[in-house]
Design a binder for these strands. Structure first.
Lengths: 106, 106
DNA sequence: TCATTACATGACACAAATATCATGTGTTAT
DNA sequence: ATAACACATGATATTTGTGTCATGTAATGA
């Protein structure tokens, strides 16, 4: 642990939100501007902007301006292996139980 | 993403807490029972138990009973590479800015 | 058997995070 | 110049997460 506990907290906190995770997941298919993300997700523009800011702050997405549009791209170098790693962890240690419980809540 | 957004949310949420991170960090030195964790951290027993439960639920620590004691061990196979990976990410994408800002809050 | 120790669990008040609402800024088009 | 569009930012109410308090359970020892 090279950093402060608070720093790790904020890093993981940035990923501990289903809407941000959905945005990340959508951006994995390729860069999109804010409006496009809204259309695909059905989220409001302000919410998307707020959440993109959090993700950008933690280096999980990158922004690129193009006229009045702002294109966001996921940090594949981090996100891809991170998600794969966690999938592997879940396969081994977490359980169907977990998935089932969350499904039942809906 | 093989699992639901909620599942990832809870996984990352389990790590998005400085007290749990401190417990994890302490357990990296070796397994400890609840009382020992309390002494080292200065945390209350109930808080430690609650947080250990969250960590155990997500496969980040393992429990082993020994009489009236319960020894907890960190899941090194997951935690060690995960933290190393995130350290590397922060080195590259996140910044001193981040650390500084959090320091200033104190 | 009955304390005592070690830890877990449930309920709840407080603190933090979140989405939404209102508004602001920069860019393009007319 | 100004209207329309794309997006960001600030404030706030509400949800969610957290630690603490009170209590419960299992194991050990006297």
């Amino acid at each position: 642990m090279k950093h402060s506990l608070e720093t790790y907290k904020f890093f993981f906190g940035a990923l501990a939100n289903p809407n941000r995770l959905q945005i990340i997941n959508i951006l994995r298919q390729g860069k999109k501007n804010v409006g496009e993300i809204c259309v695909v997700t059905g989220f409001e523009q302000t919410m998307v902007s707020h959440n993109l800011k959090v993700l950008e702050y933690h280096g999980m997405v990158f922004m690129e301006k193009d006229g009045k549009y702002r294109y966001y791209a996921v940090n594949k170098k981090t996100i891809k292996p991170l998600l794969e790693f966690i999938d592997a962890h879940m396969e081994e240690y977490c359980c169907k139980l977990l998935e089932e419980q969350h499904e039942r809540k809906k």
